[in-house]
């Protein structure tokens, strides 16, 4: 972790945010910018390669990973608004290139990867000024943010900085929402049972919104909420934080 506050950071937007939740990406960059950091979004970026890697298509994952490694050439931190994609880059890039010429490059790249909320809390030490109306929300942490990136408390610390926001924790917070990428369509019945239980657990908080740091989970959870007529909705934490400090 850099001891000094970096002046410039890269932003890795993720493929899901690129296509489905660009607002979350913009909000993430805006939050960083407001901390006085220059944010660079390299247009050659695409996807971390996790879908291919997790499906066992290692050659395809490596091709995509190499493209990302080339797209972020400077020695700046790479901030990622997804614990899952960050986990792929940080944990699995070195594994994918183990015993190959690009292994050192992959390790150096991995060392620069940060999950957004972790970066805001531990590197930038942000202070948030809440201007929004009173609101209760609950938090969903993704499995990879918790178990690959060690991001458990950071996003909650950010939410707790918001004076008018009450964070209501939900039961089984550490249990997977059932997304799992291709799992959701390869095992549709199990995935459906898992997301139904997740939605029920979130609804137990009697809050209007679930905030999360991963859009894959959000697509799954809010999709199931919408389909089942749940009164709840969901939002990426970057958008939520920006909305609160803008009032």
């Amino acid at each position: 972790m850099p001891a000094d506050r970096p002046r410039t950071v890269y932003f890795f937007g993720t493929c899901v945010i690129d296509l489905f939740y660009p607002g979350a990406g913009l909000a993430g960059m805006e939050l960083l910018k407001r901390q006085g950091v220059r944010v660079v979004f390299p247009p050659e970026q695409s996807c971390c390669g996790q879908p291919a890697r997790n499906s066992g298509y290692f050659d395809e994952a490596r091709a995509v990973a190499l493209r990302q490694m080339r797209a972020f050439p400077e020695d700046w931190p790479i901030v990622v608004p997804s614990g899952s994609c960050a986990g792929m880059m940080k944990t699995h890039y070195p594994d994918l290139f183990d015993g190959r010429p690009q292994h050192d490059q992959a390790r150096a790249f991995a060392a620069r990867v940060f999950e957004l909320t972790d970066f805001l809390v531990n590197v930038l030490d942000v202070r948030l000024d809440d201007r929004g109306p009173p609101l209760a929300v609950t938090w969903h942490g993704s499995c990879h943010s918790m178990r690959e990136m060690g991001v458990v408390d950071q996003p909650k610390a950010l939410l707790r900085q918001l004076a008018n926001v009450t964070l209501v924790e939900n039961p089984r917070e550490k249990e997977c929402c059932g997304f799992g990428g291709t799992f959701s369509v390869r095992q549709p019945e199990i995935s459906a049972a898992m997301v139904a239980d997740k939605v029920a657990a979130l609804e137990e908080t009697r809050t209007a919104r679930v905030v999360s740091g991963d859009c894959g989970c959000l697509m799954n959870i809010t999709g199931a909420m919408a389909r089942s007529g749940s009164p709840m909705g969901g939002q990426h934490i970057a958008e939520f934080l920006l909305e609160r400090i803008d009032g």
Partner: peptide
């Protein structure tokens, strides 16, 4: 299969790549 228990994911009208370029975040 996805839509059996979930709503359809909606593509945003513009990608983050396009929006980032418009807002000047590119290299």
């Amino acid at each position: 299969t996805w839509m059996r228990v979930r709503s359809r994911p909606v593509f945003a009208p513009k990608t983050l790549h396009e929006l980032a370029r418009e807002k000047g975040y590119g290299n």
